[in-house]
């Protein structure tokens, strides 16, 4: 290793391990090896990373409070550094971390709420593609509709949660926290068809259908699965409701290339 590479490796090693001493060779004008000066760099790294998480997970932060969030983010940032300089992607694995972070166990919906917030940032930065219009759907011949597969829009994500995460998220958008009346499970769709990212709670009687369509089932298979559990399932209403969210970009016939 070159002298330069060795110096940098020592610096990086000490930077991310606060228990380590200041690297030998770092000095001041009066020849001191000053831990407080090196601490500025350590602090910059962690403040920057925890601020990036606070920015990406505002509702998660609001749910646990600033202090708890800062502590939780600090533990995560200790273990997980960004994989690239694209900081808006930092925290993709934060929800999984929250799910296994014992101090957060008393809020069992917190990890899913954080998952919803990662989907929001991804949608915000996703590629711009025209959403699938209802006109395309209505032009499909009735006999080919069951074989049709809907392709998700680049901005779209579906979150199937055992908790009312969409309602909890929506209740924390204003200055005053709204009420969450039910603790029922929710399926939430995030999509940004044009400029604004939408968060949509799928009606409970359409949730199974929506999940199947997002997983790539044909409309026929998705409808059959929905009818199995609900004889009153309304295929037309569920399909129009789903496509209207702007969460799909194209259709494909099963067995054909997109």
């Amino acid at each position: 290793m070159s002298a330069f590479a060795a110096t940098q490796a020592d610096f990086a090693q000490a930077l991310t391990n606060p228990a380590q001493p200041v690297p030998i060779g770092l000095t001041t004008t009066d020849g001191r090896n000053d831990p407080l000066r090196f601490a500025v760099y350590r602090n910059n790294v962690f403040v920057g990373l925890t601020q990036a998480l606070a920015k990406r997970f505002p509702v998660t932060r609001r749910l646990v409070g600033e202090e708890f969030f800062a502590g939780m983010a600090r533990v995560y940032a200790d273990a997980e550094k960004p994989a690239s300089p694209l900081l808006f992607r930092y925290g993709d694995t934060f929800p999984d971390f929250i799910a296994t972070f014992p101090p957060a166990a008393s809020l069992p919906y917190l990890a899913d709420l954080a998952r919803l917030e990662t989907a929001l940032t991804r949608a915000y930065h996703a590629a711009d593609v025209a959403p699938l219009g209802l006109d395309v759907l209505s032009a499909i011949a009735p006999d080919t509709l069951p074989r049709t597969v809907l392709l998700p829009h680049p901005s779209a994500a579906q979150l199937v949660s055992a908790w009312p995460v969409g309602t909890i998220w929506a209740a924390h958008q204003g200055e005053i926290v709204g009420t969450v009346a039910s603790r029922a499970a929710e399926t939430v769709i995030v999509a940004r068809p044009v400029m604004d990212v939408g968060v949509h709670v799928v009606p409970a009687n359409h949730a199974g259908f929506s999940a199947a369509v997002f997983e790539g089932a044909t409309l026929g298979d998705a409808a059959a699965r929905a009818l199995d559990s609900d004889a009153a399932f309304d295929f037309g209403a569920a399909l129009v409701g789903l496509v209207s969210l702007g969460a799909f970009s194209a259709v494909r016939l099963n067995g054909e290339e997109a």
């Binding site: 330069f4 940098q8 790294v45 990373l49 550094k81």
Partner: peptide, 16 residues
Amino acid sequence: WSTHDACFLNDLLPLP
């Protein structure tokens, strides 16, 4: 510098 071992350190770090 700000990247080391494929990990972004999120600060503008000094060099000799």
